[in-house]
C-alpha cells in the first residue's frame, strides 16, 4: 500500500516539476508517468535485488532509455523528459539531513550521510552518461548496418 502511494506521489511530483519547468501539452503526462515508472523500477530493484545504489543506477538507466525513445519519437530534447522523470530519485532528504548534520556538528553521521549521498548521485550521473553512450553506439551500429545493406543491394 505504501508503495502504491509512493508511486502515485512520484507521478504527481514529476508532473509538478514538469509544470515548474514549463513543459507543455501531452508531454506533461509523459513526464509524470515516467517519474512513476522510474520510482516503481527503483522499488522493484530495492525489494528483489536488495540494493539501494543498484536501484538508483538501474532506475536512472531505464529513465534515460525511456526519455531517449520519447525524445526521438516526438523530436524534443532528451532533458525535457529526463529531468522531470529523475525527480523522484533526487536525494533531497539525504542532502538535507547531511547538511544539517554538518551544521549541528555531528561529524560521524555527516560522514556516512555524505557517502550515501555521493553514491546515489554518482550512480545517477553514471546511469545518464552510460545510456547516452549506449544510444550513440546503437545509432552508429544501425547506420553502418544500413550503409552495408545499401552497398550489398547496389552490387546485386
Amino acid at each position: 500500500m505504501t508503495h502504491a502511494i509512493q508511486i502515485a506521489m512520484a507521478f504527481l511530483g514529476s508532473l509538478g516539476f514538469a509544470v515548474m519547468f514549463h513543459v507543455k501539452g501531452i508531454k506533461l503526462f509523459f513526464c509524470g508517468l515516467g517519474g512513476a515508472v522510474t520510482w516503481a523500477i527503483f522499488l522493484g530493484v530495492k525489494i528483489f535485488g536488495d540494493s539501494i545504489i543498484g536501484g538508483f543506477f538501474i532506475a536512472t538507466l531505464s529513465a534515460s532509455l525511456i526519455s531517449e525513445i520519447l525524445a526521438r519519437k516526438i523530436k524534443a530534447p532528451v532533458i525535457m523528459f529526463l529531468v522531470p522523470m529523475l525527480v523522484p530519485l533526487i536525494p533531497g532528504s539525504d542532502l538535507y539531513y547531511t547538511t544539517s548534520h554538518l551544521i549541528n556538528n555531528r561529524m560521524q553521521e555527516f560522514g556516512s550521510g555524505l557517502t550515501l549521498l555521493l553514491q546515489k548521485v554518482g550512480a545517477m550521473a553514471f546511469g545518464i552518461i552510460l545510456m547516452a553512450s549506449f544510444v550513440q553506439i546503437f545509432l552508429y551500429g544501425k547506420q553502418s548496418f544500413l550503409k552495408g545493406l545499401m552497398r550489398l543491394k547496389k552490387k546485386t
Partner: peptide, 24 residues
C-alpha cells in the same frame, strides 16, 4: 513537512547534472 518543501529548494538536479557534466 519540511522535506516536502526541501524538494523545491534543494539543488538535487543541479548536483546530478554537475556530476554528469564532469563525467562528460
Amino acid at each position: 513537512i519540511i522535506i516536502g518543501n526541501i524538494m523545491l529548494l534543494i539543488p538535487g538536479i543541479l548536483l546530478t547534472t554537475s556530476l554528469r557534466d564532469m563525467i562528460n
